[in-house]
Design a protein around this nucleic acid. Structure first.
Lengths: 188, 188
DNA sequence: TATTTATTTAACCAGCGGTCAATAAAATGT
DNA sequence: ACATTTTATTGACCGCTGGTTAAATAAATA
């Protein structure tokens, strides 16, 4: 036997959609190519036609997410509102991204696996730098770099706590707003 | 062949001591029963005489760690220092615990896995309540509950960010101290 | 000496990442 | 319409790791 015409043709996108879910639910090491294949209803060999290795498949996913987050940050920065509000919205936007793309967020910032880290590399830091830059400018340089780092980590804490405990950003919007205001209380 | 009288008898404690080290260094998934046995100089089969499974051995350790965290909090609370400093040390102590017992922290507060969660139960919330209570009292009731929650989440953010990026608490002590001071800036 | 306790050894089994020849379906050429 | 080529897919296989178990056996105990 070989191809079965009753099933849709396997595409990289289909594989990535399934892999994304599994990696997020179980982590990189705990997901096997065989599991992914099973979920897709195809053989694991087929995956190797579309991706050279498990690592390559994983990396393809991670790249997507970083682009998406950068876009969302840009959206806020281009808005025509006051700086202080923009600042708040940057922070809220980070939480919103995290909780509305939970699967993405976990892979980008929370998976600890060594092999995975080598792939992801300096990308989280690039996000941070963009974020830090925005905050620094928007605060009229009143925010110190150290404080920005504390803010970033604290936003990460919020997201990572509510991950999987909550369906979407809207569920905890009030808590998020309070958290952001709390973080800005002493500094602006 | 069977027992070798020149070696000390294997005890649960000996196993746990070695397992603890390995789990801390490499994480749950990355440690095998065979590794633990090798380190102990015994056969891997012997471990199953003392523990039913790898999971049981691990959970025995995790339980210890909830006790340990509570003890460390108590240690701070019993110190003879000013309330504000005590407050800071509670927060610092939390970070310290997290980074000096990284793989356990992950299990205690970060793993979403259902099987694990059932074992761990409501213990993280108990920790939080104790923590919240301490902060509330130490601040002379100036800290609001919502703010305490933001602080807790922000400390968690710090720990979870540096997890596996760092060998021990000492590596980032300065950043930790700054973070704590930052969080208290607006409220005390 | 007989029994209980602790330990070793070897095997079992399931799963992994990855490879590859075989093959069926689809696309293409004629 | 048919033949050929290309593309996509399968499933068997390799070497390996690792949790778990059962039989054998040594040491301690009574």
């Amino acid at each position: 036997m070989a191809r079965d015409a009753s099933k849709p043709v396997l595409t990289p996108k289909m594989i990535m959609d399934v892999a994304r879910d599994l990696f997020v639910k179980n982590g990189y090491q705990q997901v096997s190519m065989r599991q992914i294949a099973k979920e897709l209803g195809c053989s694991h060999g087929a995956l190797y036609y579309h991706f050279q290795s498990k690592a390559e498949l994983f990396f393809a996913l991670v790249k997507e997410y970083f682009v998406l987050l950068e876009q969302e940050l840009n959206n806020v920065l281009e808005k025509d509102i006051e700086n202080l509000e923009k600042l708040e919205q940057c922070m809220l936007g980070y939480i919103k991204f995290g909780l509305n793309h939970q699967s993405h967020y976990e892979i980008m910032f929370m998976l600890k696996d060594d092999e995975v880290r080598n792939f992801i590399n300096e990308q989280p830091m690039k996000v941070y730098e963009k974020f830090a830059n925005a905050l620094y400018t928007l605060s009229n340089k009143k925010l110190q770099l150290k404080d920005i780092w504390s803010i970033f980590i604290s936003l990460h804490g919020f997201v990572s706590h509510y991950l999987s405990h909550v369906v979407s950003y809207e569920d905890i919007e009030n808590a998020a707003i309070h958290h952001v205001k709390f973080l800005l209380k002493g500094v602006c």
